[in-house]
Amino acid sequence: MNNESKTMVKYHPDARFLTDFSAGTLPRAQALCVSAHLHYCAACRTRMRELTQLGSELFLLQHPAAPSASAFDRLLGKIEVLPPQSSTDATPDYPQKNQPKREELPRAVAKLARGSLDNLSWQKIGRFFSYSRLPVSDAKHESSLLNIRAGSRVPHHKHVGDEITVILKGSFSDSEDNYGIGDFIVRTPGETHQPVASQNEDCLCLVSLGAPIVMSNWLLRLLMPLINRPRYG
């Protein structure tokens, strides 16, 4: 891109999301969204490193608790029987010390898709939308990938639960702003909006929805006006 501002992420997770993520307490579906945002956002990765430093300072302030007397010997026993290749180094994709590439899918999404989005099972709804439910969920949220055909308009809808959207490809806009790759967009219950995918390319989003909402029902309700033939009724 020749225009630097076009590649800048505008919408970031707030302090609460970043803190809970760095502490490891963010619900899993939401953690997946923050992780996807971090793939695109160097500023938040820096925040995350600082917050982890904070965590480690708190860790050092704890009262130590002595491990069992045999703990170290047991550890040595495990080390003795490690297979040779794992005794020295890590899995090939770890650690991630280079800056992630913007044109690639976030690492966690790529792993779920086993490298290619075509490996996922996609449900088509009408001509303009398809989604793939991801197996990452927690008590209150679930996650999906949603693909919106270029130029399509999502019907006006009301949010019933917290919803996080991270754009992975393309862009969309609503009455408030334009959103691009990496943007982390939070909608709270009661807010309404009407996103429109940009004309020139499909928009692929990672979405975390507040449960219990069955994804297909939610999408059906959302997309009903667009469906010509009620194939999923």
Binding site: Q96, K97, P135
Partner: peptide, 29 residues
Amino acid sequence: NTVSIHADDSNDDSLDMEDLWFEDENSDV
């Protein structure tokens, strides 16, 4: 704590924290 919402969720995802986490990266900042 995390009751599966869908019956087919029994095949839990394989993501570990390392898959979600970003190791410190080389950067001048």
